[in-house]
């Protein structure tokens, strides 16, 4: 007999036990694991979908913000460009004004330099001219000229007008020292006498005199006493003329000078000291 009924029963029992064992150790854990994994994957997929949605939303938001930012940037850039243009124009204007001012200043400086140069040239010319004149007159000075000077001096003394004459007379009379007569050359006796006479006659008194030679007078005679001085010399003429020319140059140097000063007539002067 191929069938052993005890074995059949034992095998059926074995099979049922095996079913229970495999259910417990194989199917249940494996199916649970699969299910857990599927759930987990589903959760992860859902999570990913949610994240994707969120990312999409954020991207949209970001894009929107980016557009806004671009617009703002464009607006700011436009504004900045306009401002820069205005500023540039202002700077250019300023620079132009500064350049103009600088140019004007420079022109003024050049004009001043030119004027100073002119003045310097004029002064030098004047000095040279007077030096030449002085030299020429000094060279020309001689005894005969001194005689003529003496004559002119005596005539002047005689023709002195009121107040000056009075002052001089008073000074001569009250002087403790003899009056000083200075001339370039030694005056001859006749001329000394003539001057003495002229003084005596003019002031109706005995005037004491002391004669001295003074080469710096160029050509002329000078009487000085007790703070009063009567002089007639070519040097005075020259000094007077020099003064007049200097004043004329000063007048010219003034930019607003409109009227030309007339040259003053040179006169022999009587000064009080």
């Amino acid at each position: 007999m191929l069938i052993d009924w005890f074995t059949v029963g034992a095998q059926a029992l074995n099979f049922l036990v095996l079913v229970w064992l495999l259910k417990r150790f194989l199917y249940k854990p494996i199916l649970d694991a699969i299910e857990a994994r599927e759930k987990r994957i589903a959760a992860e997929l859902a999570d990913a979908a949610a994240k994707e949605g969120e990312a999409q939303k954020e991207r949209d938001e970001f894009q929107h913000k980016n557009e806004e930012f671009d617009q703002q940037r464009a607006a700011l850039l436009g504004k900045a460009t306009d401002e820069a243009k205005v500023e540039r124009q202002r700077l250019i204007d300023e620079a132009r004004q500064a350049a103009d001012a600088l140019g004007a200043k420079r022109q003024e400086a050049l004009r001043n330099d030119a004027q100073e140069l002119n003045q310097a040239i004029s002064r030098r010319t004047q000095q040279e001219v007077f030096a030449i004149a002085r030299k020429a007159l000094t060279d020309l000075a001689s005894t005969s000229l001194e005689e003529r000077l003496g004559e002119v001096f005596t005539r002047r003394l005689r023709t002195m007008d009121g107040k000056a004459k009075e002052c001089l007379g008073e000074a001569l009379k009250t002087a403790s020292q003899p009056a000083l007569v200075r001339s370039v050359f030694d005056l001859p006796e006749e001329q000394r006498a003539a001057i003495q006479n002229a003084l005596n006659e003019t002031f109706s008194a005995e005037i004491r005199l002391r004669f001295e030679t003074a080469p710096d007078l160029v050509s002329g005679i000078e009487l000085s006493t007790n703070g009063q001085k009567v002089a007639w010399s070519i040097a005075d003429y020259l000094a007077s003329m020099e003064k007049g020319v200097s004043e004329l140059l000063k007048e010219k140097a003034r930019p607003d000078a409109t009227t030309e000063p007339k040259p003053e007539e040179s006169k022999p002067e009587t000064t009080s000291q």
Binding site: L22, F25, L26, P29, A33, R37, R40
Partner: peptide
């Protein structure tokens, strides 16, 4: 079979 199943399913992973 039982021991093999038990050994394998003792430390099942639910991850990937």
């Amino acid at each position: 079979m039982a021991v093999g199943s038990k050994l394998v399913t003792r430390k099942l992973s639910t991850g990937l």
